[in-house]
Simulated assay, not measured.
Amino acid sequence: MRNLMKPLLLCLGLLLALQVQASTRVLYAGKNQPIGEVETYFMGNELVVTAQVTEVGWCLSASHLYVGEQAPTTSAPGQFPFQHELGCSLSDTYRVNVAAADQYVAYHAVSKQSAHPIGGTVSYMVQFPGDDSYLKAYIDGMGPYDAWCIDIGRSITPGTTYTNCELRSLNDQDLGVVDREENLGYAGWILNQDWSLYPEYSWKEIQAALWKLIDDNPPQNAAGGISWDEAKALEIVNMALQNGVGYTAASFEGLVVLCKNTNGVVNRQITLVAVPVAGFFIGEDTAWAQGSSNWYNSKGNMIGWGSYFLEPYSQP
Rank of each mutant, 00 (worst) to 15 (best):
Q290S: 14
G300P: 07
T271M: 09
L258T: 07
V265H: 12
N267Y: 03
F281K: 07
V266S: 04
Q290G: 02
Q269L: 10
F280M: 11
G300Q: 10
V265T: 12
W295K: 06
V277W: 07
V266A: 10
N294K: 12
G264Y: 02
V273D: 05
N263P: 00
W295N: 04
D285R: 14
L258F: 10
V257Q: 08
V275H: 00
A289I: 09
A287D: 01
A274R: 12
V273T: 11
E253D: 14
V257T: 13
N301V: 13
E253N: 15
I270M: 04
V257A: 03
G300L: 07
K299P: 00
V277C: 06
A278V: 13
K260Y: 08
N294D: 11
L255S: 03
V265Q: 14
S293A: 12
A274H: 10
I270D: 00
V266Y: 11
S292H: 13
C259V: 11
V256N: 04
A289R: 12
I282Y: 03
G254D: 00
N294S: 12
N297Q: 06
L255I: 11
A278T: 13
V277D: 13
N267S: 13
N297D: 15
N294I: 07
G283H: 08
W295V: 08
A287W: 03
L258Y: 03
K299W: 07
N263H: 11
S298V: 14
I270P: 05
A278H: 03
Q290P: 08
G279A: 04
A289V: 07
Y296W: 13
V266N: 12
N267H: 06
G254M: 02
N261H: 07
V257K: 10
G291W: 01
N263G: 13
I282D: 13
Q290I: 03
S298W: 02
